[in-house]
């Protein structure tokens, strides 16, 4: 029955090719002209003086540090959620101690002005 599996794959490939062909062919038939590339950003009618790709403000990075704290919470809480019913009170206390440690980090970042934007 290996031919059957192969036939299924061929069918999928043919379907994808057909859909893509119809989309691009249809677009080619009704389009007005070539795709325009290199359009400048809108600056109220002015030409851009610098490249739009530029470095981010350092505050973005301090903000991402706070994201990491919440991310770690999630990473450890998913497996914890599976076993917390078996392990009982001890697991709940341990998790909340861990959360408290992370929250201390968030509060520290907050105090240091990581959430202050201006």
């Amino acid at each position: 029955m290996s031919m059957g599996g192969f036939g299924g794959a061929l069918l999928v490939v043919a379907l994808v090719a057909g859909v893509l062909g119809a989309l691009y062919g249809g677009a080619l038939l009704v389009r007005l002209g070539r795709t325009v590339t290199g359009t400048r950003p809108f600056l109220s009618g002015h030409d851009p003086a610098e490249h739009a790709v530029s470095r981010f403000h350092v505050r973005w990075y301090t903000l991402t540090m706070i994201f990491l704290a919440f991310d770690m919470e999630m990473v450890f809480m998913y497996p914890w959620a599976l076993v917390v019913a078996e392990l009982g009170t001890k697991a709940v206390i341990e998790m909340f101690v861990f959360l408290a440690v992370l929250m201390a980090g968030v509060v520290y970042a907050w105090r240091e002005g990581a959430l202050r934007w201006t």
């Binding site: 325009v36 490249h51 790709v53 470095r55």
Partner: peptide, 29 residues
């Protein structure tokens, strides 16, 4: 209209940096 679309010229330069309010250097746009 589609045929007469103008392609823009060279890309502009990268932004220059200058001191910001935190005493660090940051791009000026």
């Amino acid at each position: 209209h589609a045929a007469s679309a103008v392609h823009s010229g060279l890309d502009p330069e990268m932004a220059d940096r200058d001191a910001d309010r935190d005493g660090l250097a940051l791009d000026q746009l």
